[in-house]
Design a binder for these strands. Structure first.
Length: 440
RNA sequence: GGCAGGUUGCCCGAGUGGCCAAAGGGAGCGGACUGUAAAUCCGCCGGCUCAGCCUUCGUAGGUUCGAACCCUACACCUGCCA
């Protein structure tokens, strides 16, 4: 794909603005100046709350990447320490995960994050903009209680902490443990450590991180006095919204993960492909490296020929390639083409069909056709519907298809002639959920 | 620690002994329309060997012919008091 010409060190702010990413900064003029004065080091933290990053994380990950392309040095920080405590969220207290689990997740997130940034290649001389991967467990795991309370805690005012939005909402509702209440101390201290270790002078995050970020810049000033490595800044990116008001990054089957084991590349591709017309241009800005000219062209195409879905296709291809690689992307495009083709599945050759069905939920069964379970059972077994009752309903609703032919009989069974190439069945629920049966 | 209130299906929320698999709304799913979009209208929305049966209303017991609804204990949440 045609890559954007990298922004220069100072243009990065304008670029973020154009992409609709810039929400708040601690001192915009000061930040512009710092960026202009030479490469800076910036960081963004990712707490291990699950065994994979999800599409929502991409906003921050790619923002780090943009800074790197613009000539700055990014640090991806994984929260091996903070993950043990938990950033308070408005919804309610988090449940703690075991240290072993967290350690494992830290590993996974670190690997995932590394794929998006440029590190010093093996055997090469380090460059000033090479990315750094850190884990705050390195300092938080060993900090003593006395040290934390005396050296860090003394700089925090409980009055201010109580005034924070999340804290207020929690106190007015579910309440909050002391553990979570203390979280901000740890994240703030991370910034201090990175400032000292790497001269990191900028922390970025989503708008929900504003409080934690400013607490960090404040703490650096209080602990390190005159900011020996230069003034520190904070920058937040806008929370991504969807035109229909629902949460970004979820589908019927839940969160869209980057891990191919949790969200198949096919499902990942389909997620982006199904983006709403009203959202797709904003997504291209936030999630891709397409140039302004390219995106404006795609915007025009969306307005003129929405049915062609050119912008969605571009978005889906760019992101699938970025996250899963070119080969995988090619496969899922082929699979999508085959399964959403003109409806004539008999025209597909066995290899294409086999590859396509490998991308969707499917089940295996013992032949011959006459011995196969009823269609309703196959629908449930393939995972296209969650239960046999749901499968029955799907048929009753007229939303179940075998090889693109609507199933009308609730007791329908498969006949020999139905098997494509003697061993495949393409199951479909509704318009876009496709599954398969492979007869062994 | 004391007192009061609360805990219902994915979420919100009604339901105070049989007519409750449980009102209503939202989300979700399907159909029509279209473009694998949105909006709109219609239908569905615990499970199963599906005109029937089974399991659900914080947990465990109890009362009763019969309990989401009554009683007891426990857990958690919220508020007021200390």
């Amino acid at each position: 794909m045609e890559r954007a010409r990298d922004s220069t060190v100072t243009e990065i702010i304008d670029e973020l603005q154009w992409r609709g990413l810039l929400a708040q900064t601690t001192d915009l003029d000061g930040l512009r100046k710092a960026l202009a004065d030479g490469p800076i080091t910036l960081y963004c933290g990712f707490d291990p709350t699950a065994g994979s990053l999800h599409v929502g994380h991409l906003t921050q990950v790619l923002t780090l990447a943009r800074f790197q392309r613009a000539g700055h040095r990014p640090i991806a920080l994984v929260g091996g320490g903070t993950g043990l405590i938990g950033d308070p969220k408005p919804g309610g207290e988090r449940s703690l995960n075991s240290p072993e689990t967290i350690a494992h997740w830290v590993d996974v997130l670190g690997r995932q994050l590394s794929a998006f940034l440029r590190f010093t290649p093996e055997g090469s001389a380090p460059q000033p903009t090479d990315a750094v991967l850190e884990n705050n467990g390195a300092w938080l795991d060993s900090i003593g209680a006395i040290e934390l309370l005396r050296d860090v805690g003394k700089h925090f005012s409980v009055n201010q902490m109580l005034a924070r939005e999340t804290v207020k909402s929690r106190l007015g509702g579910e309440g909050m443990s002391y553990t979570e209440f203390s979280y901000v101390l740890l994240q703030s201290y991370d910034f201090v450590e990175l400032y000292r270790r790497h001269r990191c002078t900028l922390q970025i995050g989503g708008t929900d991180q504003w409080g934690n970020i400013t607490a960090g810049t404040d703490l650096i000033r209080r602990m390190d006095g005159n900011e020996p490595h230069g003034p520190v800044h904070g920058l937040t990116t806008n929370l991504l919204t969807k035109a229909d008001g629902t949460k970004f990054g979820k589908t019927e089957s839940g969160t869209v993960w980057l891990d191919p084991e949790l969200t198949s590349p096919y499902a990942f591709y389909q997620f982006w492909f199904n983006a709403d017309d009203r959202d797709v241009v904003r997504y291209l800005k936030v999630f891709g490296f397409r140039t302004r000219a390219e995106i404006e062209e795609l915007e025009r195409l969306t307005a003129e020929r929405p049915a062609a879905r050119t912008a969605q296709r571009t978005l889906a291809e760019d992101l699938t390639t970025l996250v899963h690689g070119e080969d995988e992307c090619r496969k899922v495009i082929e699979a999508s083409k085959a399964l959403f083709g003109q409806g004539d599945l008999t025209g597909l050759d066995a290899a294409t069909l086999d590859a396509a069905l490998a991308e969707v939920p499917r089940t295996e069964a013992d032949g011959p056709a006459a011995a196969l379970p009823p269609v309703v059972d196959l629908l449930a077994a393939s995972g296209l519907v969650p239960s046999k009752s749901a499968a029955r309903r799907a048929v009753q609703d007229g939303g179940a298809y075998v090889n693109n032919v609507k199933v009308t009989d609730i007791d329908a069974r498969v006949a020999d002639g139905d098997l494509l190439h003697g061993r495949y069945l393409v199951l479909r629920r509704g318009k876009r959920s496709v599954g398969g049966v492979v007869v062994t």
